[in-house]
Simulated assay, not measured.
Amino acid sequence: MNKATKLPTILVFDSGVGGLTVYHEIKQLLPNNHYFYCLDNAFFPYSEKTEQQIIDRTLLICRKLVEQYPIDLVVIACNTASTVVLPTLRQHLPSHISIVGTVPAIKPAAKISQTKHIGLLATKGTVKRAYTEALIKAYATDCQVEKIGTTELVELAENKLRGDSVDLGKLRNIIKPWIELKQLDTVIWGCTHFPLLENELKLCLPQVKYFVDSGKAVAKRVKFLLEEKAYPTTAEMNHNQQNLIFATAAIGNIFGFNNMMQRYGFSELKYLD
């Protein structure tokens, strides 16, 4: 199969399962491509790690996968990582591999907000990054921007996707500073895990009209880059390759995880050394 007819292989990477929200948007737009998903659960959560640790770890894992498999495009489906790792990946991975990051959707949130009072709900790392502050200064100077940085919410989302119920009391405690902010009409999901808690967050923040994330924008960027390289984005032939999911440590709650794999269309779980 030559390049003109080859369906591209896309690697979606995150510290946990939150990046599946981005993968879902890409797969909806490009359903016939070949997908790998990798979660670095041995190092989860990234929000508790230093910037250099995140850079080193992400490069190490992406290099391993790129050396073993013919990957055409890498999506870093993690805001915490994307705010620091993209230049390093573009420098050290083969030049033919496109790199797409996921960063807080501050620009569209500032545009859509009617009250100009918006909230950034993200990890501790993303909230304090200079990259994030630069986005706010560039696109949201006319807005009042509230910030909550949390690791607990990431863990609640991970557990929910594996089949556990969400503790609404704990969730409300995390977002307590926003509950009485009546003018807060827009919230940015600054972590790919948080759309997994959409229903629960809407219950806790009924005044918020808009919840904004980067998933659809990332999917459109992936489609654009593949078309630019002349890869087909729709299949005219059967594609027999299996979509695989990789982990860096043993997976707990196997029953729930297997259900999740089936739901997202993955045929096999593999472990990276």
Rank of each mutant, 00 (worst) to 15 (best):
T132Y: 04
K27L: 03
I136M: 02
V100A: 09
Q207V: 08
I61E: 05
N258F: 01
M261Y: 05
Q207K: 12
M237L: 13
K270G: 02
V85C: 07
L7D: 03
V218Q: 06
N238V: 10
P94A: 09
K229T: 02
L184C: 09
V208H: 07
C191R: 00
R57S: 04
S15L: 02
K6T: 10
L120T: 04
D213P: 00
N41R: 04
R162V: 11
T186Y: 03
E200S: 10
P94L: 12
V145G: 08
V127G: 09
P177M: 04
N253F: 09
F44L: 15
F194Q: 02
Y131H: 14
D167F: 10
K137V: 02
D185W: 09
M237F: 13
F36S: 00
D40I: 06
L65Y: 02
T234N: 13
K6S: 13
A77E: 09
V187T: 02
P94Y: 06
L244W: 11
N243H: 15
L272T: 07
E51K: 14
E228F: 12
K107T: 07
Y210D: 13
D167V: 11
T88P: 01
Y35P: 10
I188G: 07
K270D: 02
K137Q: 14
G18C: 05
R57M: 01
S98W: 00
Q28M: 09
P8C: 00
S95Y: 09
A138V: 00
L153E: 06
S165E: 11
G265S: 07
Q68L: 13
A235G: 08
G18N: 02
D14E: 10
